[in-house]
Amino acid sequence: MHVSLQNRGYCHLKRSSLNEKYKQRTAIFFPSKSLKNFLDSQAGLILTLPALAFVTIFVFYPLAQMFYLSLFRWNFVSPNMVFVGIEHYARMFLNDPVYLRSLVNVVLLAAQSSAIQIPIGVALATIIIRYRRIGGLFWAIIFLPYVISSVAVSLIWTWMYNPYFGSINVFLHAIGLGFLARPWLGDISTALIAIFGTVNWIYIGLTTTMTIATLKSIPPSIFESARIDGLSGFQEFRKITLPLLKELIVVLMIIDIAGAFQFFDLIWVMTQGGPSDSTHVTTTWLYRAAFRSSEPGYGAAIGVTIFIFSFVIVQLLIKITRSRLTR
């Protein structure tokens, strides 16, 4: 069928009148026009139905069941579930120091990610854009860790931190700082910091990439006129780039907060929450409670708090910042 790609001047017609025209045309070709027309009138719903089915079954049904399960004591296999009401929630906040510790760790993770990755990412992004040729190669390098699986990365860094052959200790010995060498992941005072180091190593490329995408959406004419006005590189950054980056920085912080609540692989592979439960995040503690201690009800309750912290609060943050930024 011939289709004109040009605007044929029907723009002034309302969509409903276009649909009328469609019905008149098709009536000539299809005798069973009523079914055809019915299917076409429901096209929107029909085309979204498969996706809707998947999302309903695998996202929303479990999400709803999570709230229900969190009210019961149970062990996965036994047929009788004991209703305990909000007991799990009370235990979480009043009687579970590891859970509270895991919340603190999530906050620390989000805070350090924002404080370290955003400034470095913004700096690297401006450099990459300014020095295009060498910047392209550099960009490719710093983004590389992001495409490698978190399990592989965790193993590699577990070896970096290994007390015997780990490169960090070997390096410290080599430059005469051997007294600083230690089992980084086994030492309660350094385990969390060691994990944070790996986190930043993985995600610095992502932060930089998001910043570059934002900066590239700025029309280059602004920079040109700034250069004509005689602004130095730093002035240019402070006067033009930074204000434009404000919204991005807020978005990156929100991503860091949401990301911290979705953090699991790295910690499970590197420390399993140890030593002495000091590196647990809420997700690893949920896993331990639900699947290792066979308390799915308690795990579901922890899941409810993860959902509330990461989804509800993040949505609120987005709403607040959007309205404030667009004002």
């Binding site: 979204t48 996706a51 809707l52 999302v55 309903t56 079954i57 695998f58 996202v59 929303f60 049904y61 479990p62 999400l63 069941q65 999570m66 399960l69 996965f76 949401a258 609540f261 979705q262 699991f264 997700t283 949920l286 896993y287 639900a290 699947f291 799915p296 795990g299 579901a300 899941g303 409810v304 993860i306 959902f307 990461s310 989804f311 993040v314 949505q315």
Partner: peptide, 21 residues
């Protein structure tokens, strides 16, 4: 909204009911 909301939800939260499903 239903189709997109999942992007903002942590799958970790629903591990227990998902396994049961």
């Amino acid at each position: 909204n239903l189709l997109i909301a999942g992007f903002f939800i942590a799958p970790h939260a629903v591990l227990v009911p998902l396994l049961i499903l």
